[in-house]
C-alpha cells in the first residue's frame, strides 16, 4: 500500500474537558429527593373503625411490631400501620390470585 501523505490523525476535542451538563450539585438533588420522599410519606387521613379481634390476633399485631423492631430495625410503625398494611396486602392477594388467595382458601373452606 502506498504511504499516505495525510497528516497524522489527531482530535484535540477528545482531549480537552468539556462543561458540566447537570448544573446542580448532589446536595441540591438529594434535598429535593428527600422532600419528595417526605411528601409521599405524609399520612393520609385516617378514619376510626372498630373490629373485634380474638386475643391471639391482638397478640399477633404486637408480635409483628416486636419482630419488625428487633430483627428489622423498624422503629416508626404502629399497630394501625400493621393492620392496615396486612389488609391492603390481603386485598391485593385476593384480587390477583382469586380462588388460590389465602383469604379465599381460608373462608371458602370454612363456608363449604
Amino acid at each position: 500500500m502506498a504511504k499516505s501523505k495525510r497528516p497524522a490523525f489527531v482530535f484535540p476535542e477528545l482531549e480537552s474537558r468539556g462543561r458540566r451538563t447537570i448544573l446542580r450539585t448532589t446536595e441540591e438533588v438529594s434535598a429535593e429527593l428527600n422532600a419528595l420522599h417526605e411528601a409521599e410519606e405524609e399520612p393520609k387521613e385516617r378514619v376510626k373503625v372498630t373490629y373485634r379481634f380474638q386475643p391471639e390476633a391482638v397478640e399477633a399485631v404486637e408480635d409483628i411490631r416486636r419482630i419488625l423492631r428487633r430483627q428489622h430495625g423498624v422503629r416508626k410503625v404502629n399497630r394501625e400501620d400493621i393492620a392496615q398494611a396486612a389488609v391492603l396486602e390481603a386485598l391485593r392477594d385476593l384480587e390477583s390470585n382469586g380462588p388460590s388467595s389465602f383469604l379465599a382458601r381460608e373462608f371458602g373452606e370454612a363456608a363449604s
Partner: peptide, 11 residues
Amino acid sequence: ALRGLRMLLDT
C-alpha cells in the same frame, strides 16, 4: 463523529 465524545464522557 468523534467530536463530542469527550463531552459525553464528561456528562
